[in-house]
C-alpha cells in the first residue's frame, strides 16, 4: 500500500526518446513486482508523484517506464529532461492489473501498452491477442518485440495515418467490425478513460460478460 510520501531515490540509467514526445526511462531494478503493477515517480522526495505502469519484465536487470510528454503537465516535461546519472524518487510497486495465462485480449491505447510490454517480457504472451491503438505509425512502441512474439495476433490500429498491414481506425472501430467476439476469454484494457469506456461498451454489446473485462485507466 503506498499512500505516504515514502519515495526512494534511484539513479536514472537512461532516458531515451523512442518516438516523438515519447520516452523510455530506465533504472536499476532493486525490487520484485508483478506484471501489470505501477510505481509512483516523483522528481524529488516531497513532490506529488505520478503513477506509471512498469513496462519491463519481472526478471530484467532494469525497470522501464514509458511515458509521453503532456506539454502543460506538471511532471512529464521535467521527466523528459532527465539524463543518465540524475536522481528520481519512486514508490514500491503497487496495483493489481494482473493477467492470467488463459486465452485473452490485450487492448491498449498509446502509452497504455506499457503493462503489456511487462507481460510480454515476463513470458505471458502465449494465448494473447494484442490490439494497440495509436494516432500515427510511429505510435506503436515496442512494435518489433510484439510482432516477433505475437505475429498475426499483433494488430496495430492507426487513427491518423495509413500503413502496411496496419488497420486504419481506432481499436474501437476494429472491434466494432468484428462479427463475433469470444465470450469466454478475458479482455485487458489499458489507456485513457475514453478508450476504456468505449471499448467496454462495445465488448458488452457484443456479448462479452462485463466480468471478463479488466481495465486500467490512466487518469
Amino acid at each position: 500500500m503506498i499512500y505516504t510520501n515514502e519515495l526512494k531515490k534511484v539513479i536514472v540509467t537512461s532516458n531515451i526518446s523512442i518516438s516523438a514526445n515519447v520516452y523510455l526511462l530506465s533504472f536499476k531494478r532493486e525490487f520484485k513486482f508483478k506484471p501489470g503493477q505501477w510505481i509512483a515517480v516523483g522528481l524529488n522526495a516531497t513532490d506529488n508523484p505520478r503513477l506509471y505502469s512498469i513496462a519491463s519484465g519481472v526478471d530484467n536487470d532494469e525497470v522501464n517506464v514509458l511515458y509521453d510528454i503532456k506539454p502543460d503537465g506538471a511532471i512529464t516535461p521535467n521527466l523528459a529532461a532527465l539524463k543518465s546519472g540524475d536522481a528520481i524518487y519512486i514508490s514500491k510497486p503497487d496495483g493489481s492489473f494482473y493477467c492470467n495465462n488463459g486465452k485473452g485480449w490485450w487492448i491498449a491505447a498509446g502509452t497504455g501498452i506499457a503493462p503489456f510490454r511487462s507481460m510480454l517480457e515476463s513470458g505471458m504472451a502465449k494465448n494473447k491477442k494484442l490490439l494497440h491503438g495509436g494516432r500515427y505509425l510511429s505510435s506503436f512502441y515496442f512494435e518489433k518485440e510484439f510482432a516477433d512474439v505475437l505475429g498475426e495476433n499483433y494488430i496495430r490500429c492507426c487513427s491518423q495515418e495509413k500503413g502496411n498491414a496496419v488497420f486504419e481506425g481506432r481499436v474501437t472501430d476494429y472491434l466494432k467490425d468484428l462479427k463475433q467476439l469470444p465470450s469466454d476469454e478475458n479482455y485487458y484494457l489499458c489507456g485513457s478513460s475514453e478508450m476504456v469506456v468505449e471499448t467496454r461498451d462495445i465488448l458488452v454489446d457484443k456479448g462479452v460478460p462485463f466480468g471478463n473485462i479488466i481495465a486500467e485507466i490512466y487518469f
Binding site: Y3, L51, S96, V196, I214, I217
Partner: peptide, 23 residues
C-alpha cells in the same frame, strides 16, 4: 470484494477499498 469492485470500478486496481478504509 476486490475482484468484484475492480470490475465495477477500475480505480480498485490503483487504490483498493480496503486501503481506503484502513486510512
Amino acid at each position: 470484494f476486490d475482484e468484484e469492485r475492480r470490475k465495477l470500478m477500475p480505480i480498485q486496481h490503483v487504490y483498493s477499498i480496503k486501503d481506503v478504509i484502513d486510512i
